[in-house]
Each structure stands twice: as structure tokens, then as C-alpha cells.
Amino acid sequence: MSEMRVVEISAPGGPEVLRLARRAVPVPGHGEVLIRVAWAGVNRPDALQRAGLYAPPRGASDLPGLEAAGEIAAVGPGVRGLSEGDRVCALLPGGGYADYALTPAAHCLPVPGTMGLKEAACLPETYFTVWSNVFQRGGLRAGERFLVHGGSSGIGTTAIQLARVAGARVFATAGSAEKCAACERLGAERAINYREADFVEVLRGEGGADLILDMVGGEYIPRNIKALADDGRLVQIAFLQGPKVELNLVQVMTRRLTLTGSTLRPQSDLAKARIAAALRAEVWPLLAAGRVAPVMDRAFPLEEAAAAHARMESSAHIGKIVLEVGSG
């Protein structure tokens, strides 16, 4: 096939700027594979890119879509360990909203156990993000108190499960009784409805959080610092309420706090390959055994990508939203 369907961003704006188009099927270069996409995950960075707030890195596809699952359609020079027909899920530099997508071979992972491609498409972006930030950067250990904001999101539902399996005491925030109940079913010791309770008071009452994973930012940042235990760590991965805030950093010094954070997409191919290798060794066995699993919200056909974005930006979802691209 020489052409494929894609979803383009016609101009910066709301979900309505996403449009179906046709482009040439890309050819894998050295160390790359071409994936015949069956399902593609929908994530917040896709919406930020669509709005003109998150430009793709140099050399990456301008199409949205940072994760997908499907079959290897072609392999580029220098690729070892992957062959045409292999079922994989993969972290993508972009381009997931299409029939075919390119990615470095080292960013591909096998579909765990008997999991379907629909569920596997929900793994890469969230699991790469949670593993690298909660465990590698945040250093979460058994017995520690862990707070994740946005507990019912794709990131949140993943973080709750992995932290629970690691032996941490897990706390989460969410915006409704339904979402809080979902967090507790996944293993949160307590889910805090932020419309009804102050997470700072709850965590301080437990001795403070040893680690907080936050994607809200804004006025949450000084509150997170108050909620931390002495020697606690705050890991920032997004800023839904904005990145700028006035802070009194005396607490950071006197209580020996650590403020850090990261974004996944701009990291080097080698850094992402190392995260993939760690996931394959440490987390993929948990997925294959059913000890952790993606939480699914809703699926949309590729041509309804705008509706998928509207669903995500409504914050009504619990878990992951996916696009059905091909069969699988």
C-alpha cells in the first residue's frame, strides 16, 4: 500500500481542527520499524499539540499520536529481534493517528500475555511515564506514602496499580464519588474528592506524602509542598493549571524536600530505550500475570478523533481512550 489514512491537525485549535486525510506510507530508516496500527492511544499531549502548545520534536511526525499497537509491517536496516508480523505496542515520536506509524525498534514492546491489541495500545505512554517518574526519578519504595493527582486518568490508574504492587500506601485525588470509587477499587487506600476535602489536611494527618506525582500544577504546587513529609519528593509531569506560581522555598531547605519533574517526548531515543528495557524486565511480567492492567474508558473510530479529544478534555473519562484504526 502506498497511501494511508491519517488524522491531521489542520490549524491550532479545538477538537474540530482534526481532519481525516491521506498521506504516503512512510519507509523505516536505520533502526526503525513500520507498524500497521490497529489501535492508537489518546493522551493529553495530543490535545496540547492540537492546540498549538506542544510542538513535536525536530524530525518527528507532525501527526498526533504517541502510542499504538499493531503488527510490524516492515523493518529498517539494523533492526534485530523484530520481524514482520510481530504483534507489538510501542511508544511513538508522533504519528499514531494513522494506518501506519514509524518508531525506533527499541521503543517497541511485545503485547503482554494474552492481552488484546486494543488494551496494549493503552500501555506505552502511561507506563513509560509512570515507571520513569514514580520509580526511577521519584524512587518510590515499599511502605512509603504515595499521592497521585488525577487518580482516575490513564496516568493515575496506572500509578495506583504499580505503586500498590510495589508495596506503597497509595492515596489519590479525583473529582467525583464515581472516580474516587474507581481509584479505591484499583488499590488506593483513600481517594480524596478534591471538591469536598483538602488533600493537604488528609496527607498531613497521615504523616505527609513521601512522594507526590502531579500533573495539575498551578496552585497545587505550594499545596503539594505542604502535603509532603520531611525528605519528601514532588515529581511534576504536566501543568493543567499552569506552570507559574509564587513559592516560599524555605520549606524545601528546612525539610529537605526534592522538587523534580520530566517530560517524556523530548528525551533521547536512548533514554526511552532504557525505559523500555526496564519495563520489559520489571513490569511486563506483572501485566502478563494480570496483576496490573490498563483501565479502559471508551473507543472511537479513527475518523472520530475529534470526539475522542472532546471526551478527554471533558475530564468525564475514567482510564484510557483509544482510536480504532485497523483490525485487531
Rank of each mutant, 00 (worst) to 15 (best):
A316K: 12
N193Y: 01
H30I: 07
P56A: 13
A238Y: 01
V202Q: 03
L82C: 07
V25M: 12
V25C: 12
G95T: 05
P26I: 06
V33P: 03
M115W: 08
V200C: 10
R280P: 11
R164A: 13
M215L: 12
A293Y: 14
G154L: 07
M1G: 14
A74C: 11
A90G: 13
T129G: 00
N248K: 11
M312H: 04
G151W: 02
R23A: 15
G328E: 02
G150N: 06
S327E: 15
E16Q: 15
G167V: 11
D230Y: 11
Y127A: 02
A229Y: 02
A101D: 06
R5V: 10
Y100N: 03
A68Q: 04
A101E: 04
S315E: 13
T103M: 10
H30C: 10
Q236D: 01
L228T: 04
Y220A: 06
W39L: 04
A191S: 12
V325F: 04
C122D: 01
G94Q: 01
V88W: 00
A289M: 07
A121S: 15
H309M: 08
H149T: 04
A68L: 05
F300M: 05
A229W: 00
V325W: 01
S327R: 14
G150V: 03
I192A: 05
G14F: 06
V134F: 00
R185P: 07
V75W: 08
Q236W: 00
Q236F: 00
M215W: 04
E184F: 06
I221S: 01
L162T: 08
V88N: 04
S153V: 09
Y97K: 02
P285Y: 08
V165F: 12
R185F: 08
V283I: 14
V325P: 01
A106N: 06
I318N: 01
M1A: 14
T260H: 00
K272E: 05
G218T: 10
N224Y: 08
A177S: 14
